[in-house]
Design a protein around this nucleic acid. Structure first.
Lengths: 113, 113
DNA sequence: AAGGACTACTATGTAGCGCGTAGTATGTAA
DNA sequence: TTACATACTACGCGCTACATAGTAGTCCTT
């Protein structure tokens, strides 16, 4: 299962990050910890930071630097207009994909019933 | 979106193939066409055949060769006991993953409402 | 004022899968 | 015998998650 799960997550962590940011701006370290809370999406910094960089350079995120109450300054990320639009498309696509898969399963169950 | 979709499919095509085979034995070419019918899962032979080989060498599938009414002999794949068990685990994991993602989205909608 | 602890981010290399592209071989029908 | 649909094989690339390791800023304690 392990290797499969790694593969399955491809693209998904990105979607999760965008969904987190849809709730409001956030910084890398905190995003990592929010994802840690979701068992199926547990990730490390080495997964999240590259994603944030990539999404920023693609114009889906914008950055704001602000000092932290403790530690080095934080880089707050938030969705751009393009990012918000893209997220909607991605969520829609995800839903369709899920529906297709469920259909595949249901067809089988029907055939076996 | 295109690149993202390619990434998102990783692991997913495998799951779809297993679900198709759960309905009964089938051969590569036909599986490809069944997947073509599902818009979100359209794939080519170069995606499906490697998956079938891999799953077979992992012991999740077994093969039976039978002549085709037209063209070269077909290699019929079907789930082994291990494969059936694994598929159940994978479907469960998928459902949890989907639920987690939906939760992330719902949290946001609530916060914004 | 110096050490440690926590915070926040950076750097680098690897594995694995989907996919593009191309090619091979079998059998039927005209 | 050539055309066509069927069925499968071979090879290489691009991208993402992830492991591992390292850097640096700020606070607290003694």
């Amino acid at each position: 299962m392990n290797g499969w799960i790694t593969q399955l997550r491809k693209g998904l962590v990105e979607l999760a990050v965008l969904n987190i940011l849809a709730a409001g701006e956030n910084y890398g370290y905190e995003i990592v910890q929010r994802l840690q809370d979701i068992e199926e999406l547990t990730v490390t910094e080495s997964t999240v930071y590259p994603i944030l960089s990539r999404l920023t350079s693609e114009g889906l995120l914008k950055v704001r630097v602000a000092s932290s109450p403790q530690g080095p300054p934080r880089r707050y990320f938030s969705l751009t207009v393009i990012g918000r639009h893209r997220l909607r498309e991605m969520n829609d696509y995800w839903d369709e994909l899920n529906a297709s898969l469920v259909t595949l399963r249901v067809e089988r169950e029907r055939r076996q019933a």
